[in-house]
Simulated assay, not measured.
Amino acid sequence: MAGSIALGVAVTSTPTTVEAATPAKPTAVRTTATAANPAGYAQLFVNAWLRSSADEATSVQARLAQSMAPDVELPAAGAQPRP
């Protein structure tokens, strides 16, 4: 008898519905636009350029200066005094 009652309840009951979870809303992220400071770039370039010379175009300093500003010529040979 309990089996037939359980069968009747199962047949007449409404199916269980599952409600989908609401999608999470992304949180707003505030970013502050800051301008890049060119002073560090300029200082690095000038330092590399002053330490290089045209006769040593393969030195580390000359290659660094040329990679940062390929259109700028290296100082002439002997233009910079050596310590």
Rank of each mutant, 00 (worst) to 15 (best):
T12G: 05
V60F: 06
R82V: 14
A57R: 10
K25W: 12
D55M: 12
S52L: 05
A42R: 07
D55K: 11
Q66L: 08
L50T: 05
V9N: 08
L7I: 05
T16A: 01
A69M: 01
T32W: 13
N37P: 03
P70V: 01
T17D: 02
L44M: 09
R30M: 05
E19L: 04
A48P: 00
E73S: 09
P81K: 13
T12L: 02
L7M: 06
E73T: 09
A48G: 01
S52A: 14
M1N: 14
P38V: 08
P38F: 01
P23I: 11
S53K: 04
T34V: 15
S52R: 03
S59M: 14
A21I: 04
T32M: 15
P70Q: 05
P70A: 06
L7Q: 05
E73Y: 06
A33M: 08
A39P: 01
V9P: 00
A79T: 09
N47T: 11
V60A: 10
T27E: 15
A54N: 11
S52N: 04
A39T: 12
G40K: 12
A28R: 11
S13H: 02
F45I: 02
D55F: 13
Y41I: 00
D71I: 04
T12C: 02
S53T: 05
A42Y: 07
S13W: 01
G78W: 15
P15Y: 01
N37H: 11
A48H: 01
Q61F: 09
A20E: 01
A10W: 03
T22Q: 06
P83T: 10
V72W: 05
M1P: 09
S59W: 06
A57Q: 10
S67L: 10
A20S: 00
V18R: 00
A24E: 13
P83N: 13
R30E: 12
P75E: 08
Q43W: 11
N47P: 03
S52V: 05
E19P: 00
S59Q: 14
T27F: 12
A69Y: 01
G78Y: 15
T31V: 15
D71Y: 02
E56W: 04
F45Y: 06
L7V: 02
G8V: 10
G3S: 08
A76Y: 11
T34H: 10
V11M: 13
A24G: 07
P26C: 08
A57W: 04
Q43K: 11
L64E: 07
L7K: 06
V29R: 10
L64K: 05
Q61V: 10
M1G: 13
E56F: 11
D71V: 04
S4H: 11
G78S: 14
E73N: 09
G8N: 09
A39D: 15
P83C: 09
A6Y: 07
D71M: 03
T31M: 12
V72Y: 04
A2H: 05
T14Q: 03
A10F: 01
A24L: 15
R82F: 11
A42C: 08
V72D: 04
A2K: 04
T31F: 12
A77L: 07
